[in-house]
Design a protein around this nucleic acid. Structure first.
Lengths: 163, 163
DNA sequence: CTGAATCCCTTCCGATACTG
DNA sequence: CAGTATCGGAAGGGATTCAG
């Protein structure tokens, strides 16, 4: 089986004796796997970039900045297979290949865009939360060590002095 | 440096001579990294699950179904550090730890929910697209092989018969 | 230019075992 | 119950090379 195909076990042990409360647990047989691909680092960026315009391979490569040729090619093939991106090959030399969102991909775009926008809009809060967390953790760690040292001292005193 | 800290280079080469068209390329110094964490497989599921209710570690473990103890613990630590999830330790025995979304995390919930809903709502279309793609690819591959075989035959004839 | 294929190193992650 | 520590296999992904 070729590399990117993912053996897709496909199973879905029958949902007998299992009350579907929301979507949470195992009905994701397929969903879980799709979500993984959609929420993939590069897929996210590519879909976000392909907004109402088509871009060629090299343009995407430059725009994403950091993606390797290998990963971009793989990502695009997957997105094409999933019917989210359309690939147009122009029979010219040098070859030119354009990528654009399919109607299905376009419906995903706004959702992904929302996610990206959220991240942009809250990155400062997250950075602050991280800083606060790190400080708290450092303090706790320090207090912990002090406590250990104190106990050590006490133990030494007891052993050395009066016993 | 401990495992999950991620060396966070933090750089962001100054945005001189770079027209910010949208968000696409490199202003993601920080965003890119946050997006990666948020769009993470387990983070997504955990945040989606923590809807207006608090769950304890084991409940999450069961609900997510498939996550290892290690990954769940790591994911929760990260989410806590990012200020998206709040952790409450009850000083009882056996220990009990509750997790719930912070206000910040709650604002992310709907967005993530939208992503999950999209996936659920379009999984059939994606499955169909994949099937179609695979068939097309198989046909092309078959045609390719036929062509090769045909040319082979011709070449053999030329070499053997009249030359 | 647009890929596919190979090599190879790094990171991820699950299984297991051990604390509080 | 709620973790942390360690280890080994598996997967991810970059650099390079070759082809159309």
């Amino acid at each position: 089986m070729k590399e990117g195909t993912s053996e897709t076990p496909g199973y879905c042990r029958d949902t007998e004796d299992y009350d579907v409360r929301q979507w949470d647990t195992r009905e994701d047989c397929e969903v879980r796997q799709i979500l993984d691909r959609i929420a993939d680092k590069w897929s996210l960026l590519v879909i976000a970039l392909l907004d109402r315009r088509s871009l060629r391979f090299t343009e995407l490569r430059r725009a994403v900045d950091g993606v390797s040729q290998r990963m971009l090619a793989r990502t695009l093939r997957q997105l094409e297979r999933d019917g989210l991106v359309h690939r147009t090959v122009h029979a010219v030399v040098p070859p030119r290949v354009d990528y654009e969102l399919t109607p299905l991909g376009a419906t995903l775009h706004s959702t992904i865009r929302a996610l990206v926008d959220w991240t942009e809009g809250h990155q400062n809060e997250i950075a602050a939360a991280r800083a606060a967390y790190d400080i708290r953790e450092a303090e706790e760690r320090a207090a912990q060590e002090q406590e250990v040292a104190r106990r050590d001292a006490v133990a030494r005193d007891v052993l050395a002095g009066r016993r």
